[in-house]
Design a binder for these strands. Structure first.
Lengths: 261, 261
DNA sequence: CGGCAAATTGAGCATTGTCAATGTCTGTGG
DNA sequence: CCACAGACATTGACAATGCTCAATTTGCCG
């Protein structure tokens, strides 16, 4: 749900502030960008593969995912997105969308026209750099997903996905045992990892039995963050997160990796 | 081998001209960019995962690949690059490399400093747009690779890889039966597709037996381009190639898909 | 000719998929 | 408040795609 007391693009600004430091003027320019806000139900398409693309689309609340289908109809999920993420930042650069974007929950989406975006980018090189960097990070995440489905076994793939979504939701600022939003069904986890939902179910049971996680409806409780990272062969470098400061924020990374064979 | 009679960056210009139309001034500005050219042997690292990155690196001749390793040492190839490709275009945007880049053959590589690049991008928005578009296309290719390893079976993955590399080498401007450069060993094909070299070998034998391709040392002869695309579930959209004109160029896409079950 | 990397072959195995049934939860309408 | 529908999760038995291991052959290059 969008907070009516804050500018609509506040969450996007916060996301970009992980990628650059803005002046007051830059911050105000970003928040002042004219944006058309639309609320949408879960399961709606924001972009469809093959359709012409234009403008920029930002996720102001809720979650969404990118996907693409093969000839025989099977679906590969390519990325999961949360509040503040840029969903498409194509100043009319590519003619047609090469994948689809669909909502996972009720969302608020902001649309910004290409022209406005071009103007902002021209006027504020620092903002351009932050947007560019955000795109590079998304590309880095995509490469990590190639490894995940290409080289890791089922248990590792799923643990890795849990780690990524947990870290991107700020798990390291949370208490040692905490819950994160989990917008995916087991079938969607399968489509993200190249596994069947049946096998995902069995692997999740294994992870629960090992005391790594537990599941509560649309959230996952993480009991052993260090162990989960060890199982998932997780190395956060690819997310290019800003340096975290403070003891609390480093909790997960200093403990001994738990053995879980 | 670099042609000494042409400016070093000619091949990069040709690549970018697939993404935008440049004025004479822009073309000359690009070719005049100061570039440090280095020849390197096969198997050398251009970028190493975890090391700081800077500047821009262009492949002026030969081929190279991106890859990343998992904890247990297995390697995933993330992309294959040919003459003219931009290998890293990071105006100091990300602090450390999230993957490695290694040469596949003897190559000539051009290094351009970040500052020069920033100047060019600021002075020529049209060039900036072409570079940006090139990056977006590389991201699109990475997403297609996620599908390839996540959803397709062994034969489809390999056929898809052959199609991609063939199309990027301009197969559609070649005669109906033609050879393309094939810089990968079977083990490397395995690392690119998430398969073992043993299984790659068996699948390639199947494709040869089916009359799709034949192999001649470091090149692959393509006998049935339409059939290969059908087997690989190949849809070129993700490459965002410029519209091709002429009958010859459309040869492969108009024939009936061959049945090969 | 020798050395080495790459390709090829075979046999056995295991991770993961398939199919089909059943259980569970949640929201909605009567 | 209960019944019901529908989506999601879970289970079991069996099949198969692709992996492992280990040996052998081929081809290239000095």
């Amino acid at each position: 749900m969008l907070d009516p007391d804050r500018p609509a693009l506040t969450s996007m600004l916060e996301r970009l502030q992980c990628r650059a430091t803005f002046t007051k003027v830059e911050q105000e320019a970003l928040l002042a960008v004219p944006v058309q806000v639309t609320a949408m139900d879960a399961g709606k398409y924001l972009v469809r593969e093959g359709e012409p693309t234009d403008g920029c689309c930002v996720l102001l609340s809720g979650s969404a995912f990118r996907h693409k289908r093969t000839r025989n109809g099977s679906r590969q999920i390519l990325a999961v997105h949360f509040t503040g993420d840029l969903l498409s930042f194509n100043i009319g650069l590519l003619a047609v969308a090469d994948h689809s974007i669909q909502t996972l929950s009720r969302v608020d989406v902001g649309f910004v026209s290409s022209q406005v975006l071009v103007d902002i980018v021209d006027a504020f090189p620092n903002i351009a750099r932050a947007l560019w960097r955000e795109e590079l990070v998304q590309a880095s995440v995509a490469r990590e997903w190639i490894i995940n489905v290409g080289q890791r076994d089922a248990r590792e793939r799923i643990a890795h996905l849990v780690c990524e979504l947990a870290l991107r939701q700020g798990i390291e600022a949370m208490p040692a045992v905490c819950s994160i939003d989990w917008p995916l069904t087991q079938e969607q986890v399968g489509d993200a990892t190249g596994l069947t939902s049946v096998h995902v179910n069995r692997m999740l049971q294994g992870m629960r039995a090992a005391g790594l996680i537990s599941m509560e409806g649309r959230s996952v409780r993480i009991h052993d963050w260090a162990g989960l990272q060890a199982v998932g062969d997780f190395n956060r470098t690819y997310l290019h997160l800003p340096k975290v400061s403070g003891v609390e924020a480093q909790r997960g990374s200093v403990g001994p990796p738990s053995v879980w064979a």
